[in-house]
Simulated scan of single mutants.
Amino acid sequence: MRNLIQIVNDLNDREISFHSLHENITIDRSNATGQLMFHLFASFAEFERNLIRERTEAGRIAARARGRVGGRPEKFDKKEEEMIKTLASNGTPIKDIAQMMGISRTTVYRYLDK
């Protein structure tokens, strides 16, 4: 995957200027000052993205330490999960189990793989 610097360098090679709509600035990459400004902005953007990633991961770790788990809650409790496994082990077709429980066949297989 190409990054922003590669894309802007390719545009610059084709004599296409870069204009940031968000910051409302045009960076003239034909001189040293413009190249420096562009690389500074790119570095700050990467730094900010990495900070967000680190904070998000720290939040997940803290939530897990408090007993919280991410993701969607389970549809069935242990009793219903055992019923799905029992039906499957007795030879009931997966399609029938899915219709009976109101779930997709993929979900049935997911419960069987647990």
Score class of each variant (00 low, 15 high):
Val8Asn: 01
Glu46Ala: 02
Ser89Cys: 05
Asn12Val: 12
Phe44Gln: 09
Glu81Ala: 15
Gly34Leu: 07
Arg49Met: 01
Arg60Asn: 07
Ser89Thr: 10
Ile7Phe: 04
Glu57Tyr: 03
Thr86Asp: 12
Ile103Ser: 02
Thr92Trp: 12
Arg110Leu: 07
Pro73Leu: 05
Gln35Cys: 05
Arg29Leu: 15
Thr26Pro: 08
Ile52Gln: 02
Asp77Gly: 08
Val8Ser: 02
Arg105Lys: 13
Lys85Pro: 07
Ser89Gly: 02
Ala88Thr: 09
Tyr111Gln: 01
Met100Arg: 14
Arg105His: 10
Ala88Arg: 11
Glu15Asn: 15
Met101Gly: 01
Lys75Asn: 09
Arg110Val: 04
Arg53Gln: 12
Met100Gln: 15
Ser104Gln: 01
His22Cys: 14
Arg14Thr: 10
Arg2Phe: 13
Met83Tyr: 08
Arg110Ile: 04
Ile5Gln: 11
Met101Asn: 05
Ala62Pro: 02
Ile61Asp: 02
Asn31Phe: 02
Gln99Leu: 09
His39Lys: 13
Ile7Arg: 05
Glu23Val: 14
Arg64Tyr: 07
Gly71Trp: 09
Asp113Cys: 04
Arg49Phe: 02
Leu21Ala: 11
Phe44Ile: 11
Leu112Ile: 01
Ala42Val: 03
Thr86Glu: 10
Lys79Ala: 11
Ser17Val: 14
Lys79Gly: 06
Gly34Asn: 07
Glu74Cys: 12
Lys79Cys: 08
Glu57Lys: 03
Asp77Val: 02
Ile25Arg: 15
Glu57Leu: 05
Ser104Ile: 02
Arg2Gly: 08
Ala45Gln: 05
Ser104Leu: 04
Ile61Thr: 03
Phe76Ile: 06
Lys85Glu: 13
Arg29Ser: 09
His22Tyr: 14
Val69Thr: 15
